[in-house]
Design a protein around this nucleic acid. Structure first.
Lengths: 344, 344
DNA sequence: CACCTCAATGCAATCGATTACAGCTGAGTT
DNA sequence: AACTCAGCTGTAATCGATTGCATTGAGGTG
């Protein structure tokens, strides 16, 4: 348990700790002979720097913290994977936290990451309003980038996709497949993702004259269960429209399943779309038409912004909002353009 | 960015840093009046302990590291969630790392966690053999518990399920459903999970006289893609047996999908079983019969062992192997006992 | 009143690595 | 021969919190 310290290496090499430090952190001038001696001694003893001590001394940890709403949501896990990969290239490590979709837990995680002196934080806020104080407070103390979702009215960097453009593609595609009425199933409008996606959906639906009944905009949470429940409610309240547009894939999976369970054929009688393109979206029956998020790009941009913020540090310049254009992935839960819709 | 230190609090309260520390960290003996003054000063300044400095001083970080083979495997993410929850109750935090199924990356992560002075490590090793040196080495330096999978020939604590007992239930159930021949589709025998599950499968299959052709034991990796590929290979090489027993749910999802794609009805013509009971296993068509792992129990036991190891510390007692009994979850990818099998 | 006990508090060392500053050495310069 | 300067290397301060030991003083005892 007792670890090898720089002092022990110094003693064995017959030099001072300063010299050892200079050799190992490859700064400063050291003669070749001494360098060899020190490296030899370090190897012999199996020396490893004590990251804690180093962090205390120069208040950098080469560590980035990330907070996501739910680690069980495959979209976030693959985003995490991308981020970790991008960070690896910079020699930084990731400290991952799960907020369990609770702004309170989220606030605690953010505080704890800050206390641990991470060099920066990447967060996908759990709530568009309630997450605000904690996010803003954290952003005031260290570099912070919001990913995918964002908090209303904070001034931080953000990277995500253009939800409005994506929804335009989705609605166009559904319209091509013959949809003349549609419902929207999302989480809450206090989530920027649902809010943006709904805005994009509604705007294009209006332009194309697709009917969206006010009571066919259903808001719950990002889960399979909610998707199932939403369909049950729609059916109970008068039946399904031509298309069901979901704010994420989990909801869409539940929606698809419920449609089939209630005897509605997808996509023959009702078309369904998701959002995110999680891996499982291609595995259900039918495979889901969805919006693919360029996760690696998002992650790379986030890491880049963080590095930049860490560098300039002193002067907080204007914040960047980077929105990437996602692509529609057409699978089997929607009708191809040429197929004549059943009802017409 | 400049943080409030204990010295500033001390000055404001008109006491020494020692007193402040005693007030804020421990129940050291401090008069009520002074305590009030100190707390007041700390609040006024918005003092927060510097976790790094504290960690350096008393080499405890109240942090546990966890390394999993793949963060995109839903089984592991829900395990992580359970572990984080269990740790939260002890006031500890989780530092999560993804090994990307690569023993080399895994070794780096373990080393880095150790360097960061985590109080203990929970690891589900990526490989039954190649992960050994890193795991053993890490276990020699600090408390370590293996979860679910384990490395051959290391002496550490371990928590997981009784794969042999689980497979016995699986095979019995398939036999009840009329299966008289079966294939096994897993990752590699160098993964303890596949090895144990296969052993349990084979033993019970022999006892029940279920035919298992040598070339119908297919080994690849834990992925949907491999499940699909395996089915293609089985079909190409002479057709499917009565049942396809998979070493995990991802494989089973791929297998189910491929069977249907190739025109085999599940479970009418071929029964399929998974292992882990990930959330998506109930969402496919048909919903998967699988083995449910008691994740919360596993996590709780792991955290308990870690705490115990951290406490005794000096005397490394004998290591505990805790195996919990999983339960079979019967869904629609297998036949109920009463339904007469098609082929008989 | 001298002496003792014990709670409250401060001083200063400590954890391990980094680094400003200073000292030393020897080659090069005048 | 005296002097400069660059290149190495060591000494000690530093990061911020904790804690063993010393000190103080109030209250108790004989």
């Amino acid at each position: 348990m007792q670890r090898v310290t720089i002092a022990q290496v110094a003693e064995r090499a017959g030099v001072s700790t300063a010299t050892v430090s200079r050799v190992l952190s490859r700064r400063g001038q050291v003669s070749a002979a001494v360098e060899r001696k020190v490296r030899r001694a370090a190897d012999d003893l199996g020396y490893q720097v004590n990251v804690i001590a180093r962090a205390l001394r120069n208040s950098r940890t080469d560590t980035v913290g990330m907070v996501v709403p739910s680690i069980t949501n495959p979209f976030f896990t693959s985003l995490v994977e991308s981020v970790e990969h991008a960070l690896g290239k910079e020699g930084k490590e990731l400290f991952l936290c799960d907020a369990r979709s609770d702004p309170q837990i989220e606030a605690r995680r953010l505080a704890s990451l800050a206390a641990r002196n991470v060099d920066g934080i990447i967060v996908s806020p759990s709530h568009g309003v309630d997450s605000r104080p904690a996010v803003q407070q954290t952003a005031d103390r260290l570099p912070l980038v919001q990913l995918d979702r964002f908090v209303d009215g904070t001034t931080t960097d953000w990277v995500g996709v253009d939800d409005v453009a994506a929804m335009r593609q989705v609605v166009d595609h559904l319209h091509d497949g013959g949809a003349r009425s549609a419902a929207f199933i999302g989480s809450l409008m206090t989530h920027s993702s649902t809010e943006q996606r709904f805005a994009g959906f509604r705007r294009r639906a209006e332009e194309l004259n697709i009917e969206v009944k006010p009571d066919q905009v259903l808001l719950g949470d990002y889960s399979v269960e909610w998707g199932e429940a939403a369909v049950a409610r729609l059916i109970a309240e008068g039946g399904l429209p031509d298309a069901l547009v979901c704010a994420d894939d989990l909801i869409a999976l539940g929606v698809t399943r419920a449609c089939r369970a209630h005897g509605f054929a997808v996509p023959r009688q009702v078309q369904v779309t998701g959002y995110d393109d999680i891996e499982f979206s291609r595995l259900t029956e039918p495979a889901l038409t969805t919006v693919h998020q360029p996760r690696d790009r998002i992650a790379a941009e986030a890491v880049r912004l963080l590095a930049a913020a860490g560098a300039k540090d002193a002067e907080r310049g204007p914040h960047a909002h980077i929105s990437l254009v996602p692509t529609l992935v057409v699978r089997d839960s929607t009708r191809a353009a040429q197929a004549p819709p059943d009802r017409i």
